[in-house]
Simulated assay, not measured.
Amino acid sequence: MTDPTRRILVGRIHGGFGVRGELKLESFTEPARAILGYRPWTLRAPSGAEREVAEARGRENAKGLVLTLPGVEDRDTADAMRGTEVFVPRAALPPPQPGEYYWVDLEGLRVVNTEGADFGHVAYLFSTGVNDVLVARGERERMIPFKQPDYVVSVDFDAGVVTVDWDAEF
């Protein structure tokens, strides 16, 4: 189901916070503060340069997460990190509960409907606020509500297939 060497994007630095080198951190985890428990981090700067960080500290404030990193001690250094992405090894994430999935684990799986029509592969998922949506790309792109068991009938990681109850013509 998962590649232990795969890295998962879990956050992004949005620049400096204050004058002591603290950083504004956008977390893609749920809850947002969960990002602080995953290690090690690989930081990828917008230039593509990467470095591993094991010692990051953070806290919540009214506007989100504030991060402290070793070697970042002033506002200029913090601002220079704007756009830096935070990755963790997929193996650092806890196993999902039964019936729950990490979106990243679904990406790349083949999508077929209950009649056997091939819809291509899971390209990505996104949230609308009401429900999540699976985007399947094959001969064309389809957006399928990720509602179990209404539209998503099964997820079989061993076979690499997501089966959906969705009209091939829709």
Rank of each mutant, 00 (worst) to 15 (best):
L36F: 04
A56N: 02
V133N: 02
T29P: 01
A56V: 13
V53I: 15
F17M: 07
G18I: 09
G64N: 05
E115I: 08
T114C: 01
G58R: 00
S127C: 00
G129P: 01
G15F: 03
R75K: 14
E139N: 11
R57A: 13
E73V: 13
A34S: 14
T114R: 07
A34T: 10
P98E: 15
M81C: 03
R59I: 03
G71R: 05
V112Q: 10
G116P: 06
A56L: 11
P95N: 06
L106N: 10
Q148G: 04
L23N: 05
V155I: 12
R75V: 15
E22T: 15
L109N: 10
L125D: 02
V155Y: 00
R142F: 13
P46C: 05
P95G: 08
V19H: 06
F87P: 04
E73Y: 08
E30T: 15
T77H: 06
A45S: 13
D105E: 15
G129T: 02
Y124S: 09
G15H: 03
F146C: 03
G129Q: 01
V72Q: 03
D105Q: 09
M143A: 10
G58Q: 03
G15A: 06
V130C: 01
K24C: 11
V112M: 08
P149N: 05
F28L: 15
R59F: 04
D79W: 07
T68E: 12
P95K: 08
R110D: 15
R137N: 12
L134T: 04
A32C: 01
P145T: 06
F17T: 01
L67V: 07
L69Y: 01
D132I: 01
A80E: 14
G37S: 14
A62R: 14
G48N: 08
T114A: 08
G21D: 09
A54D: 14
V19K: 04
T128A: 01
L25M: 06
G64P: 04
N113H: 06
R44H: 00
F28S: 06
L134N: 01
R142K: 09
E30I: 13
A32K: 12
K63P: 00
F119D: 06
V111I: 11
G120D: 07
R75Q: 15
N113K: 05
R33W: 10
R33G: 04
R142V: 11
G120I: 07
A80D: 15
N131C: 09
D158R: 11
F157C: 02
G120K: 04
E107D: 13
Y38A: 13
L106E: 12
A49F: 07
D150G: 09
S154P: 01
F87G: 03
G99R: 07
S47T: 15
L125A: 07
V152H: 00
P89Q: 09
Q97C: 02
G58F: 00
D132W: 08
S47E: 13
A62P: 00
V112F: 00
L43K: 03
A45D: 14
P89M: 08
V104W: 06
V86E: 02
R57Y: 08
A34V: 04
A123Q: 12
W41Y: 11
F119Q: 05
E50F: 03
T77M: 13
E60G: 14
F126W: 09
N113Q: 08
D150M: 09
G37W: 04
P46N: 05
T114G: 00
S154V: 02
